[in-house]
Design a protein around this nucleic acid. Structure first.
Lengths: 219, 219
DNA sequence: ACTCATTACGGGCCGCGTAATTATT
DNA sequence: AATAATTACGCGGCCCGTAATGAGT
């Protein structure tokens, strides 16, 4: 199986017409036909149902199309990565940071980059919401983002940089006031950064019960 | 760029020795050398640092290795899928279900399969914990699992089948007893299935405050 | 009769293997 | 001197394009 085979498969599946597909692939029909036939043999599966007047995906073909496209997209990803590496460790990396999690990691990163890759310019960009940063990543207008564990998306690579324990700290006797308003999700996200400096008059042991690492447990 | 190029790259990167790599690839060194050189040219990046006595990955090479392996693994995934399709819509699909989420989806699925793919035998397997099911999926001893949104893993494909709202229902005046013991994560997972049948004597409006869809919000 | 996919066939390119070369330990 | 990677070179196969065939509307 070759990459060109998958490209041919994808284009024919899109056009459902060997002539147009061949044109799109800058080749003539016969080799394309042969290529598809060969791919079908190597996979042991018939991909298209063809009568001389019409072309249609078989059931097997439609089930294989998505994985095939996946391979193709990752191949171009490799090429793009290589290109950007070749373009040089001589460029600009655009980084978004959202929330408190980046406050420890960022200075470490910038210092390390400045030392080992002096050609790299870091362009930092504060982002209030995690999702705007993720969207920009997908668009390609950002290269990297620091964020608290969002729902990981298949198109993005993520790595855990730091595990934080975030405490809920309240004045004595005020828990009853807060608990009916703040259920966990909104509570943690809204106040996490503000929790960085905790005034001394707030008692800590009081709330140790509800303190739990954000690191999502089972589930 | 061809798949064989990536295989060659991966094997040489693993062996760091053209001779052994060539043997592993069932070919002689010279063509392998040429292949790597050609790949390097097509990517515009030098992958290996070679002096006649030693071979080492360059920085670019090490950064490209993982994506390259990813492509390769997905290629074999395509081949495996094709093989299993070719083996026939005539086989056994092993399905695990954990938790209450599957109770609506399962009968719908089994009925549909029995009608449209009568050759397929479904082998159902109850799983108490989501993670045992996921592990079995990765091993290959299961084909499919129904589970409530776990941390999605890159190696697994997932799809949202159903969005549930799960209510916390308690007898009147007992909230104070439960709140210090059950913080959100453990509470939901432990009692979710039991929540299916709610005795009528439990009041519902009482807890509507803390009721929230499990569908993970932002973060 | 016309369109579109397949088969037939000849030519060129690419990749492999063997043999020779170079460099390093 | 010996090992290991690269260059040199001849051969075979695969893939492409053009031409001819067949099938269905």
């Amino acid at each position: 199986m070759e990459i060109k085979d998958l490209e041919a498969f994808a284009v024919v599946a899109e056009e459902l017409h060997f002539g147009r597909a061949a044109a799109k692939l800058h080749m003539s029909q016969p080799p394309l036909s042969a290529r598809i036939k060969q791919l079908e043999q190597s996979l042991g599966v018939q991909l298209f149902e063809r009568s001389t007047r019409s072309v249609a995906l078989t059931d097997a073909g439609s089930r294989l199309l998505i994985p095939a496209r996946k391979v193709l997209s990752q191949v171009v990803a490799v090429q793009n990565l290589a290109e950007s590496i070749a373009a040089g460790d001589q460029g600009r990396v655009r980084i978004a940071f959202a929330g408190a999690s980046s406050q420890r990691a960022l200075p470490i990163l910038t210092r390390a980059v400045r030392e080992s890759h002096p050609g790299i310019e870091l362009q930092l960009e504060s982002q209030t919401y995690v999702y705007t940063a993720l969207d920009k990543l997908l668009e390609g207008s950002l290269d990297l983002a620091f964020a608290r564990l969002p729902t990981p998306q298949a198109e993005l690579e993520s790595r855990v940089v730091e595990v934080e324990k975030i405490l809920c700290a309240l004045p004595e006797g005020t828990r009853e006031l807060v608990s009916p308003v703040c259920h966990w999700p909104s509570f943690t996200t809204r106040t996490s950064s503000a929790c960085r400096q905790i005034p001394a008059r707030f008692s800590r042991p009081q709330c140790s019960r509800s303190a739990s690492p954000l690191d999502s447990g089972p589930g």
